[in-house]
Design a protein around this nucleic acid. Sequence first.
RNA 1: GCGGACGUGGCGGAAUUGGUAGACGCAAGGGACUUAAAAUCCCUCGGGACUCCCGUACGGGUUCGAUUCCCGUCGUCCGCACCA
Length: 876
Amino acid sequence: MTAERYNPRESEAKWQAVWEARKTFQTSNEDPRPKYYVLEMFPYPSGRIHMGHVRNYAMGDVVARYKRARGFNVLHPMGWDAFGMPAENAAMQNKSHPARWTYTNIDTMRGQLKSMGLSLDWSREVATCDPSYYRHQQKMFLDFLSAGLVDRKKSKVNWDPVDHTVLANEQVIDGRGWRSGAIVEQRELTQWFLKISKYSQELLDGLDTLDRWPEKVRLMQRNWIGKSEGLLVRFEVAAATAPAGLTELEIFTTRPDTLFGAKFMAIAPDHPMAAAVAAGNPELKAFIEECRRGGTSVVALETAEKMGFNTGVRVQHPFDPDWLLPVYVANFILMEYGTGAIFGCPAHDQRDLDFVNKYGLGNTPVVCPAEVHPANFKITDVAYDGDGRMINSRFLDGMSVPEAKEEVSRRLESSVWGDRPRARRQVNFKLRDWGISRQRYWGCPIPVIHCDACGVVPVPEKDLPVQLPDDVTFDQPGNALERHPSWKFVKCPSCSHDARRETDTMDTFVDSSWYFARFTDPWNKDTPTTRSAVDHWLPVDQYIGGIEHAILHLLYSRFFTRAMRITGHCEVSEPFRGLFTQGMVVHETYRAQDGAWLTPNEVKFSSDAAGRRAFSLATSAEVQIGPSEKMSKSKRNTVDPDDIIGTFGADTARWFMLSDSPPERDVAWTEEGVQGSARYVQQLWRLVHDLAGVAAPIGTRPLSAMTAEATAIRKAAHTHLMHVQENIERLRFNTAIAEIRKFSNTLLSLLSNAEAAPDDASRAAYREAADILVCMFAPMMPHLAEECWAVLGYSSPVSESAWPVLDMSLTKNDMISLPIQINGKKRADLTIDADADDAAVQSATLKLEAVQKALEGKAVRKIIVVPKRIVNVVVA
RNA sequence: GCGGACGUGGCGGAAUUGGUAGACGCAAGGGACUUAAAAUCCCUCGGGACUCCCGUACGGGUUCGAUUCCCGUCGUCCGCACCA
């Protein structure tokens, strides 16, 4: 049978319309089949989709379509993470409104996603900037508030004085605002916080249950939560040196065993004791100012030298009232961690060692490694933080580190000074509360009202949503809500006097912390979730997205889900049962002589045995081919999904995205690779026509009387079906694709090598094989599969058909071929009955000519038979 | 500095988790068809002294057998970063 070339442009549009008309991918919450929730991280509507989206959604769609075919009721929704700064920046530039920019982008991107042929339930689409979404977020905020999960407190923030907003730490680059370039100031602002740190331990423990998450992500979250167990110790201030009213200094340490190696105390510049001393000491005051200017940006911290200022205050060693330690204000002590004060043990802490070496305070080693004699153990530039026995430590001498920790803790806990013990054990976490206040317009308003008489008053539920006003201007930086003429002026809901709305909006990470729950019933107007729906669907069975969200989004969502559970909005604690983090899409870079970057469209290539060269289309000058890097506007190495889909079709783009690299690794987008995929589309198209020409009619069962050819066809079909299934289940799309290609190669050669017209047994087998082939690639190339399915005679879509039933008996062979090794080197092959026992395999091995030859004159020491794998003959 | 991952042909990668290294594809070379091009089809494709030997970054080890496990070295990438 001859076939026209497959025309993706026509077919793709046609089948997308069919799916939409038949509501093929709409999911009912009432469907009794087992549920499967597949979710890809929803996009920010920045304007157009990029190749990273194509990869992400192609993967999710394979899983969704596969699971649907396997009989699951699949939920596969899509929405928009639609609040955020870029919309305001665009509004400022274009003198328009963020909503207009956002919704225009959403329309464009929705169209692009639809052109990919994704099996999404578009009836559940949500946009976080829509009041029908954020009203529920406000409700939950109020629920969290009354459940004690929200805090309002002063905190130090990065303040951009040009953009008039708080910046996240990630948005501060070299101490400057990432957009404005202005030097970032540290400001104390009163901010709203979600009390995530209260759940540190629970979030840590929960990681152990997430066995279908990448180990890497779990480790990153573990480190981020940063649990450490230690001791809070109260040091008595020497009365003569005590600044006003301060009689003690409390520190946190994880190394109480090293207490006898202490040389100094250090406190943070913001520590109350520093302030107390500075009050009468202008020099210290200046030093503290300098530390503050140093900033908290990563770079500032990295390059900052250890600096200290001796306050003159002295404290007593807890085990020796006559041993006085000087108290320094030091720039490397953080007020936010522990108590903002430490004791310095230079011998066993690099940071402390650097400090004493600068200020000449010396060091005393107190932990001696096993292989060194204590008398010879000296510390100069490198602190020792390993194991060993205690030395120079009075009653601790000779103990191991854990023993010494325990002994110190025990003694100080039972030693009372004042009316309290000198020390208590404490667990500390690095995880800080989540500051969600943003001084921006385009975000979810925080639903509270400030009243001079009543304080902070929650907006009554009946007044939700607190909606963003439309009449705002973006002709100046800062928060448009703040300067709106009337929006913030309201009456206090409690006393009816004049009051003011909160003008801060929520961090957009709040929006994305529960969208997966909203998808389960986005139609509910009254409450954020419908318990029957959310409890049925959650957790998400397979979540797919970029590694860049390993901490923030995924940790916030895990916390938010717990908060929703506590406030009765859902049952689960962990939102994502399975997580997969896919790699980036990278592309070669092209650079002209003058240093200008060229896009892939501006370059032509020539290649021969000597290599591959690139030339500018415009000037014909040779351009340099640079390494593959993440697609970026600055390097101009981007490829537009619309162009690819327009030229090759969505199926080709999807297939190539999935075929070339393991999904967790970066994939290099290449023109040649895409063309290879496009060739394969046509190859499959021809193959299916050829198969249709020889296949028995639909519904023909494989015959019981099998010929050799029919057996070969059926075995190939079921063996490859088994492998494709396994590989899709494990998200190994690249190897699944290799199996499909192997199968189609096998069918091609069976068809072309057939000497006579196929008999009835073969025709029945070809029918089965053709059906299996199309079902196999349908998750990756759904449009082509539909068209092929029709060629095979089916009248309803393959997207609505069940996955083929695997017959395991056909994946096993009666005869197997075993490699025969002699002393670990392969020397022969043995074809033998698959269920021959070891003895039979051994004797057959020894009869082989090649083995006989290799054995000449040598004695067989032993024969190792690994059933169905390999035979190794060990000779002397 | 701390933590983690990785290192296989010209390239992307595969190898059933200790059992035939290089599946599948890309690129390249040769050939067929064609007036020609495209498309399609066939052959070759880790290296060599080619019935054999070498080869999975490098050096050791365990094992009948190591890309896989262990120790060390080198390199690349990622995360965290003065967290007491």
